[in-house]
């Protein structure tokens, strides 16, 4: 299904970027867990025997165990959580996102997210983030704030029937990877409307060109792809 992209260097770069980030992320998680356990042990020693701080060495230990290490653990925890929140399974773990996750397995190359996910045009473990991240300086921070609001609505409010992206889907999400890519710029239609695409005047996904997106309402009647099949 779909076209073979395994030899496309730009797609390989995208895949490798995701793999490297995930590998370094799991190494960092392992290191952080070891550091947290060490801090817990040291803090427990101080909890049980605070009198050891009467000696100079005990005071130094208390400073490391109750100030330096917890601060490092906090910073590390924030980084690891930010990395985890970029994973596909994180996004699709919410009930309201489950169908969007299923739509990545639609066995039809005309469905844009499915085609990108199944052919590894985006790292499969970071599929949602690759196309929906706000690629600006404070983008991740804004995403997290919106995410917190969504958690509030999910558990303490009333989730709406339809989920809409704030501000709509911006072409920048596509152009972030495709702009400058040979097969994208070799297409005369893309080049003819490039200014309109860059200014968001014409949308990639709703101008009749690539309009088959998640369409999760059609899931029941569509054939699904299963990896390894």
């Amino acid at each position: 299904m779909g076209e073979d992209v395994s030899s496309d260097p730009s797609q390989k770069r995208v895949r490798d970027r995701g793999t490297v980030r995930l590998n370094s992320g799991s190494e960092m998680t392992g290191f952080l867990i070891a550091l947290i356990v060490l801090t817990i042990v040291l803090a427990t020693v101080l909890l049980v025997r605070p009198s050891i701080t009467n000696a100079a060495a005990g005071k130094a230990l208390a400073f490391v165990a109750l100030c330096v290490l917890p601060a490092v653990c906090l910073r590390g925890g924030l980084t690891v959580h930010m990395q985890q929140s970029e994973q596909t399974k994180f996004c699709t773990s919410c009930h309201s996102m489950a169908n969007y996750g299923k739509s990545l397995y639609i066995d039809d190359p005309s469905y844009l997210p499915a085609q990108h996910f199944q052919n590894h045009r985006v790292p499969a473990d970071m599929a949602c983030f690759s196309c929906h991240a706000d690629y600006t300086i404070f983008g991740s921070f804004k995403d997290k704030l919106r995410g917190l609001h969504r958690i509030y609505v999910q558990y303490l409010g009333t989730p709406s029937e339809t989920i809409e992206l704030p501000g709509g889907y911006k072409n920048q999400q596509c152009l972030h990877c495709h702009l400058g890519a040979r097969n994208f710029e070799a297409n005369p239609i893309h080049m003819a409307i490039m200014d309109s695409l860059k200014s968001n005047e014409m949308s990639c996904i709703s101008s009749g060109c690539h309009d088959m997106v998640h369409n999760h309402g059609d899931l029941d009647r569509l054939k699904m792809w299963s990896p390894g099949q």
Binding site: T29, L32, I33, I36, V37, T39, I40, A43, P70, C73, L74, G77, V80, H81, Q84, S85, Q87, K89, F90, S93, C94, G147, R150, I151, Y155
Partner: peptide, 14 residues
């Protein structure tokens, strides 16, 4: 830190 450990083992918005 125990709460942080638990949260690291569970990949979920909560």
């Amino acid at each position: 830190l125990v709460i942080e450990l638990i949260s690291l083992a569970w990949i979920h918005p909560l």
